[in-house]
Design a protein around this nucleic acid. Structure first.
Lengths: 229, 229
DNA sequence: CGAGTTCTGTAGTGGTCGCTACAGATGAAC
DNA sequence: GTTCATCTGTAGCGACCACTACAGAACTCG
């Protein structure tokens, strides 16, 4: 299978990166073909030949995002414990969302927030990714409860905890887009980690790494009491 | 000054409410004049005579939102203590974001997330409201430190705490738009409140008795003081 | 070389965007 | 009634939207 015909005169990956940045900054529908072709340095027919159409180009950009800037999610979920996974996810998100060289915030969180009815499927595409991440966090928590790393009562609020940390991360994206720098985002992450449930031997305050005020009984009492009531 | 000429044939407030719902659901730029006029039950010339143009109609809709569904923010900030303000804001937001009868989430958070360069000022308008709310929360915290309701060290992280709770609320809006119901949002709010700093006499870690700090801050029945225990 | 294949730039397509000119309709003032 | 001011619906403005027909350019193959 040889490559016949006139060869492509642009770098497909570089063009995809340029498209990704456009979608990242403006969102799906607010990104025009004119803006895309200008940023990518190509003309519409080349775009359509290489990527299909705007809709498929967006999906390709999301995929590329997941493989590059958005890789922190998978990296964090690969950590052995739920606590490490959540902490890693928060801290990597803080660093990534405000990193120079690309638009602030998260493409998956804010890439298709404002859509017409015609682009409802685009919003659904990103929503599915967000919900998948949330479920993955909940699964990590449930697994740690089963492994004895977290008290049994935490199992009942695994979904709630996952929803909380998903909410924080999504809010961090908005904060980054509003101008928060990396330090500010890291402070948000740090405070969010104070809400992590105490270990299985709660009350003794055997906490891994975090807050100065955290190990004490207040949080342990809150979590255990609410869950067990 | 009498009213001469043909009287307006539609209810201006009702039309504004309809426009608000359109902007709320789709965001500023994804809302078309055609969609607005259809939802408002009027024709373009009537819209322009009554509200100026799409841009000014949006600002009027944001103002109406602030006076109605978005009133929870001002209500919460009117509470005497920072703790009550934040707790009230979280719980009212949880109830409001998933309430039936209107689109999910918050207009101020998600009403102008995806914009072209031409509508950058719209995004700025909402960003200013968000940042104002964040600063108001920080001011409440700083005031409570000055009043002795919170330990002096909290003053240094007043901005960080405000950023954290703003982040949670903004994330709750995304969660609501992704389908979270009121109960799920309230669980997020509850977990977020676990990160609230301990009272002024908490440094020694003598807090098994929750009454020390919670008695002043938590109102009856809200669960702010770990109600179930 | 010529034939075959694919890419590239030009120059549009119909459709929708926000917005408005215009004329008829509908009221108050006289 | 007549006059005048304002609103209303129709109909259409130029600009932009995503997208593509077309022809020439640039490559591999025989």
């Amino acid at each position: 299978m040889t490559t016949k015909g006139r060869p492509r005169s642009f770098d497909r990956d570089a063009a995809l990166d340029a498209a990704l940045h456009e979608f990242w900054r403006h969102g799906y529908e607010a990104t025009s073909l004119a803006g895309l072709t200008k940023a990518m340095g190509i003309n519409p027919p080349s775009l359509y030949a290489a990527f299909g159409d705007k809709r498929r180009l967006f999906t390709a950009a999301v995929q590329r995002y997941a493989d590059t800037h958005g890789r922190y999610g998978a990296l964090a979920l690969a950590r052995p414990t739920a606590r490490e996974a959540v902490e890693t996810m928060l801290r990597l998100a803080a660093a990534e969302y405000a990193a120079p060289g690309h638009p602030p915030g998260c493409l998956v969180v804010d890439g298709a927030t404002n859509t017409t009815d015609a682009a409802r499927d685009v919003r659904e595409e990103l929503r599915a990714v967000r919900e998948g991440n949330k479920k993955a966090i909940a699964a990590k928590i449930t697994a740690d409860v089963a492994a004895g790393l977290l008290p049994p009562g935490v199992a009942e609020e695994a979904d709630a905890l996952a929803g909380f940390y998903a909410s924080v991360i999504q809010g961090m994206s908005t904060q980054a887009r509003d101008g928060a720098d990396r330090a500010a985002l890291e402070r948000i992450a740090e405070i969010a980690l104070r809400a992590w449930p105490a270990g299985p031997d709660a009350g003794a305050g055997a906490d891994a790494g975090a807050g100065t005020d955290e190990g004490a009984g207040a949080d342990a009492g809150t979590g255990g009491g609410t869950a067990g009531a």
